[in-house]
Simulated scan of single mutants.
Amino acid sequence: MRKDKLLGTALLAMMSLAGQSAFADETCASRGDLDVMYCDADGDLVADAPTDASKLRDPGTLVFAYTPVEDPAIYADIWQPFIEHLQTVTGKKVQFFAVQSNSAEVEAMRSGRLHIAGFSTGPTPYAVNLAGSVPFAIMGSDDGRFGYKLQVFTQADSDIKEMADLKGKRVAHTSPTSNSGNLAPRALFPGLGVTPDTDYEVTYSGSHDQSMLGVVARDYDAAPVASEVVDRMAERGLYDTDDVRMIWESDPFPTTSYNMAHDLTPELQEKIREAFFSFDFAGTALGEEFSGVQKFIPITYKDQWAVIREIQKANGVKYTPEGLAAE
């Protein structure tokens, strides 16, 4: 059994136990889609901080994770300037945690082993509802713009010229919970004349990187991918842009959300926010990796993830352990 499937199974078992009444907040009057461990009395769609001060956490070492990528070791180095800044502002040691799957990242946040994390667009609602994660920032430009586009690529010499030409083809989606890699295509493509699984064969590649590399290698006829990922891949020379051709792109979606655990002390939460919003990308490895990004921008899950929730609702997504484990 694959390692990520084992992690998903373990996550499902742990959440099933946590859903028992001994772990639930029996006094919660409103929680929406949140797991029974959490409450949403103020209606902002994210977990409230514990009302019992003894349940607030102020860890000596903060653990930070970035969304799963093809080569986590590279990103540990890329994030180092920010980690050093975070240590300076918070006065705490910060450890980078390289995650191998979305399920593992959500499980780490839920279990209390992860305090700050970047979650991909699609998995963010799972982190919010299953792990008590609170999105508060996103990468953007000086003028406040942020986002990425869903783009569909095929080979440069392919006979696929428009979306309808995907009929009868083998198309790589990334993973079931991915927004641009699966959910948005399933919600948007029928309006463009092609329905995934009906008009073309869906094959899950595991990541945007693998989808794009699979198109280049002709393992797949085409693939929907996130523009920010394939742009960075091209900048690193992982594929030749002359080998592929884009046949369609969407309007912008929000990118990776940056989250903190809901049960950190108010003082620590404020320091974490200060670290994010005071970080200067200029001249850092992080700034070089994420071209066009100059700063972290404040966001809320309720507002900026509304379009993502709509897409997931259209796909029948339920924010359950089973849904995440299936990913």
Rank of each mutant, 00 (worst) to 15 (best):
N179K: 00
T154Q: 11
P185T: 00
T195C: 05
S205G: 12
D197K: 12
Y148E: 15
S211R: 09
T198C: 03
L183K: 01
T198K: 15
S178W: 05
P176V: 02
L192D: 10
I160Q: 11
Q210Y: 13
F189V: 13
D157H: 00
D197T: 02
P176W: 06
L150G: 08
D219T: 14
F153N: 06
K167A: 12
D157M: 04
Q155Y: 00
K161V: 08
D165P: 05
S211W: 01
G147Y: 04
Y220T: 02
S180A: 06
P185S: 00
G214T: 08
M163V: 11
Y204P: 06
S180C: 14
K161S: 11
K149S: 08
Y200C: 02
L188W: 00
L150T: 08
A217R: 12
K169V: 06
G206L: 14
Y200V: 08
T198Q: 13
S178K: 04
L183G: 01
A222F: 07
Y200N: 11
V152D: 08
G181N: 05
P190T: 00
S178L: 10
A164P: 01
F189Q: 13
A187G: 03
S205Q: 13
R218I: 03
D221A: 04
P190R: 05
H208N: 12
T177P: 01
S158N: 07
A172S: 15
L192M: 13
L166N: 05
D165I: 00
T195D: 07
V202C: 08
T154M: 07
A184Y: 15
L183C: 02
G181L: 13
R186C: 03
S180N: 15
T174A: 11
H173V: 05
V194P: 07
M212D: 03
L213Q: 10
S175T: 15
P190L: 03
K169W: 09
D221Y: 01
G214Y: 11
